[in-house]
């Protein structure tokens, strides 16, 4: 796998991140080193192996849909960079 400038730019876009020029050069090299090493995984035969997403079998966990912690609006908004009238305040999203 070869890491190109285009791929780095695409990954920045996917992650909603913008690197500066210096970081971009370093990141391109680091991602290349890491992925070249990660590619050793291709040597491992995984034919007919089921992917394992969870370490131990877990079945659906059901619970009644009950509110137990109450209305914490004011507390939650204390952490908001900006709020107004009990809501998070953001830039205009619809022109």
């Amino acid at each position: 796998m070869v890491i190109t400038d285009e791929l780095v730019a695409y990954l920045e876009k996917l992650g909603r991140i913008e690197l500066d020029d210096e970081q971009r050069v370093k990141t391109k090299k680091d991602l290349q080193d890491i992925l070249s090493y990660i590619d050793t995984l291709n040597e491992l035969d995984t034919d007919n192996i089921e992917p394992l997403s969870h370490s131990f079998p877990i079945f659906n966990v059901f619970a009644e849909d009950e509110v137990k912690n109450g209305d914490m609006r004011d507390e939650v908004l204390k952490n908001a960079p900006e709020s107004q009238d009990g809501c998070f305040k953001v830039h205009r999203t619809v022109e």
Partner: peptide
């Protein structure tokens, strides 16, 4: 801007690797 200024380079690198 918040993410670019708020996260350090190692975190950004892992976000990018994960998205890849």
């Amino acid at each position: 801007k918040s993410r670019s200024e708020g996260f350090g380079l190692e975190v950004k690198r892992r976000i990018m690797l994960g998205n890849f």
